[in-house]
Design a protein around this nucleic acid. Structure first.
Length: 272
DNA sequence: AAGAGACCCTGGATGC
DNA sequence: TGCATCCAGGGTCTCT
């Protein structure tokens, strides 16, 4: 499940391989991967272009092209970016291949076909709803307090809402709530200022540590060279149901919140 | 407006 | 052993 740290890690690894390299041609191995424009137009517009800058917003990848358009991509659940020799046979789940002028391929692989590519004049067409980056100054306790006011949904669900803060997924939501010692079912609007401050700090800490450890590999996530991340070794509650809480030893609980599996310590994260 | 739930997808795990 | 069913969860859409 690529979230902000995984997407950032992938982009940094990809950059030296693709920046300024002319894209000679594109192979669309599954047309559904292209959201817009229609696949034939997509290929037409991509051919001959170069990626001249690379950015990230939330979990979206932004590849700025030399014609001012932007290739926006989202990995969703199982998307992977890989660099391969052009002659390497396609994998069963490869969906898109950019053939670079230097004889290398930049490939998008996605088992579950949730990932998407958008080729647009302005990336805002795709990402305009996103909330602030969790590591930016805009994601402050005051900001979060204002956004939580009056909300009755569980704080866990609100942390996953990309319009509130961009880039948090199921793993880092659970880890942040544990570090802030907040029960995932607490109503958003019920959080006190001291708890909101703790949550902002915990979220920043978790994201920063996961970036330093180059992401969390539970199953599908790989860096573009095929290697795994390290943060799975630092998880304190996520997918550790029944294992002792690292702080107090209580077995970790698992519940479902908003349709997502949720892990927490029932002793240290209470509802009152 | 906000919240809940369906839907998209595949493969691994589980159950009989 | 083989087959059916369940589950994983990011984002979008619909319904209330």
């Amino acid at each position: 499940m690529p979230e902000l740290p995984e997407v950032q890690t992938i982009l940094e690894a990809l950059a030296p391989s693709i920046l300024e390299q002319p894209i000679d041609d594109v192979s669309v191995l599954w047309p559904g991967v292209i959201d817009r424009p229609p696949p034939s137009v997509f290929v037409d517009w991509m051919r001959g272009r170069r990626v001249v800058n690379i950015n990230r917003r939330g979990k979206y990848m932004l590849f700025g092209l030399d014609d001012e358009r932007t290739l926006v991509m989202h990995l969703r659940m199982t998307g992977e970016m890989r660099m391969t020799p052009a002659a390497e046979p396609y994998h069963k789940h490869d969906r898109l291949a950019f053939h670079l002028a230097n004889g290398r391929d930049w490939r998008f692989k996605d088992m579950r076909k949730f990932g998407r590519a958008y080729l647009v004049e302005d990336p805002e067409e795709v990402i305009w709803k996103l909330g602030p980056e969790p590591l930016s100054a805009a994601f402050s306790a005051d900001y979060l307090a204002a956004r939580l006011r009056g909300r009755t949904a569980p704080i866990k669900s609100l942390l996953l809402d990309q319009r509130l803060v961009a880039g948090i997924g199921n793993i880092y939501a659970d880890e942040s709530l544990f570090r802030a010692r907040i029960h995932p079912l607490r109503e958003g609007g019920s959080l006190r200022m001291v708890e909101i401050s703790a949550l902002v700090g915990a979220t920043r800490d978790v994201i920063q540590q996961a970036l330093a450890e180059m992401g969390t590999t539970l199953r599908d996530y790989r860096r573009p060279d095929g290697s795994v991340g390290e943060f799975q070794n630092s998880l304190q509650v996520f997918r550790r149901t029944g294992e002792p809480c690292p702080s107090c030893g209580t077995p970790i609980s698992r519940i479902v919140v908003g349709g997502r599996s949720t892990h927490f310590c029932a002793n240290e994260q209470t509802l009152t």
